[in-house]
Design a protein around this nucleic acid. Structure first.
Lengths: 333, 333
DNA sequence: TTAATAAGGTGAAACGTTTCATGTTGCTAT
DNA sequence: ATAGCAACATGAAACGTTTCACCTTATTAA
């Protein structure tokens, strides 16, 4: 059906080898070059990457696995990763596992069957052994945002612990004593680290930790909403809330709006991720901002580096998140 | 390196044909089934989809081309499409062209080289001939959100014209006479249709159309911001603004906030796309809401249907967007 | 027991490339 | 004119599957 290298060979009277050489950047005689170019144009030849991949054992494709395509943090990040990779001739298959480890496992399998040259994962935390096996097969794996215990592979993360300390310290310095935190799922490393920073600062300032003020959500808006409602209905409610991801931050604001409570006069809020939306919310929100482009670029760079030299030692890149103070913080009444 | 069907054949003492038949769901003798299963487990066999695809001339992959991975409307939509397709054994390569028709062309080419079985496109409007060619090659193409002139292919869109009329009519009924519209790029069908609805209602109600109140943006937040600033600085500024996509709506709100103007007392606003964010903005925004899941599902369905029977006549599915009235509309002063 | 038939197994060819050892051409210098 | 060499061309084998015509084994009925 479609034009193949054979058709080009027939059309030009040259051999398969010559055509192949040429389309892979090799040199041919000037008159042959013209002839081949003409044939390619006339017959509308496009190389069959499946056949090529079969032969070369390279798909020039990187698999990307993220929790959800509705997660703007992930898709945003991956848009940079894709851009970087495409400069090096790699394309990308993005799979989302809808927060379901079973689906995550399936997608990992799928990508292996598709012979991806490397794998980028924002893991659920429940597929450690599957990922281990891939690493054993010498396929480059890069973890993003979250790390997995005891896993010997490249990763790009942010300084969750430190930035969380900084946020809490700032609140404490403003006089807050009852600070709530809304974390992600306990399995996820970022959630643990952000919580640990929170606890650390309580220890440093000899503040009592009220377990009721520590909430674990699922990183989605609705859970931010519900958990915030819980917090607001406590008889001794917090004077500040630290929300540790983007979607839950939205949920928290929704809950506060619905309760007719004012930020920051009634309650202080620190959110997460510097996405355009926070320019739109009044009062402007104090947030932890992650360096999206850097994250996305580094992820791609680590894959490419390992593809070029599989023997280099694994690296965990820790980038700096930034705490941006705006108008959503005040001193407690 | 990796385990192949040949290794399984050797391990089990069976022939290639038998193994192939079994992994494709064929019947083998019970004792052979056990033997093959064991071999697959022990040797960790995974079928090489490149080899399979080469032979079967099917990649079981659908290419998806969207303007940007930072466009939440697109990624959100495609998350439904992916879910639907994966139920039918298809996976998905998502390419974004960063709003650049040159990149769009490259990505179309890339996907053809990768032998995708079908193509889903949110087109820039500048690659008509390239898409035509693909259709000629009998590869299923589905257009989403936007249609292209004279293109004989499946598409899923919403009733842009009607919904725009409804919005404008509502504003007119509330007494607005100077209504501004912020459209998308002129090349894009949705922009044209939404504008036409706007004009139609002006005609119906014998309202003068002030060209200064018609703005064309690029569907990004910043252009919404800038165009809104323009509108606000007119000496005879509009009493209502209709913004025709999500990101530009955010920009408009930002501009209005910065100008210290109040919605709806000073100006009425109607936005686009019912994304979670609008639960968070005060006052709650009146919006046009598109049926995301239906859109995404239908797109997938059309591809699958045509894959199953390439001869069926092409369909353009028009789904109903909804106008949700909230608190951002008042009568003009 | 055997013939007939059903059920399952076999292996070579093919898919569209790349690779590489070998063959052929065109130049350059004498 | 020609030897020598660089430059380029050739074509068969291989990559890991599927397919299919044909062969073998098991099952059944008489």
């Amino acid at each position: 059906m479609a034009t193949t290298i054979k058709d080009i060979a027939k059309y030009t009277g040259l051999s398969l080898g010559t055509i192949s050489k040429y389309i892979n950047g090799g040199k041919v005689r000037e008159k042959n070059r013209k002839l081949i170019d003409k044939a390619i144009r006339e017959l509308d030849f496009k190389v069959n990457e499946m056949a090529r991949g079969l032969k070369t054992n390279e798909s020039k494709t990187i698999g990307i696995i993220i929790p959800s395509m509705k997660n703007y943090f992930c898709t945003h990040l991956m848009s940079y990763t894709e851009m970087y990779l495409s400069k090096f001739g790699y394309s990308v298959i993005i799979c989302n596992y809808r927060e379901d480890p079973k689906v995550e496992r399936e997608k990992i399998n799928l990508l292996m069957k598709k012979q991806v040259d490397g794998l980028i994962v924002v893991p659920s935390g429940e597929t450690i052994s599957e990922i281990q096996e891939i690493i054993l097969k010498k396929i480059p794996v890069v973890l993003v945002d979250r790390i997995l215990p005891d896993m010997q592979c490249d990763a790009v993360v942010v300084n969750n612990f430190d930035i969380s300390k900084k946020v809490v310290e700032t609140l404490v310095e403003r006089g807050h004593k009852r600070i709530a935190i809304i974390c992600g799922p306990k399995k996820v490393s970022t959630a643990k680290e952000r919580l640990n920073g929170f606890l650390e600062m309580h220890k440093k300032y000899h503040l009592e930790v009220d377990e009721k003020l520590i909430k674990f959500g699922d990183y989605y808006m609705h859970s931010g909403f519900m958990l915030c409602k819980d917090l607001l209905s406590l008889e001794n409610r917090p004077s500040a809330i630290f929300v540790t991801n983007y979607d839950m931050t939205l949920g928290v604001i929704q809950a506060i709006n619905e309760a007719n409570i004012k930020i920051p006069s009634d309650i202080s809020v620190v959110g997460f991720d510097n996405l355009p939306i926070f320019k739109v919310i009044k009062p402007s929100l104090s947030i932890v901002s992650q360096p999206m482009k850097e994250l996305g670029d580094y992820v791609a760079k680590l894959v490419i580096d390992r593809l070029n030299d599989p023997t280099i030692p694994t690296k965990v890149i820790k980038l700096e998140a930034e705490f941006i103070m705006k108008d959503s913080i005040s001193t407690p009444n």
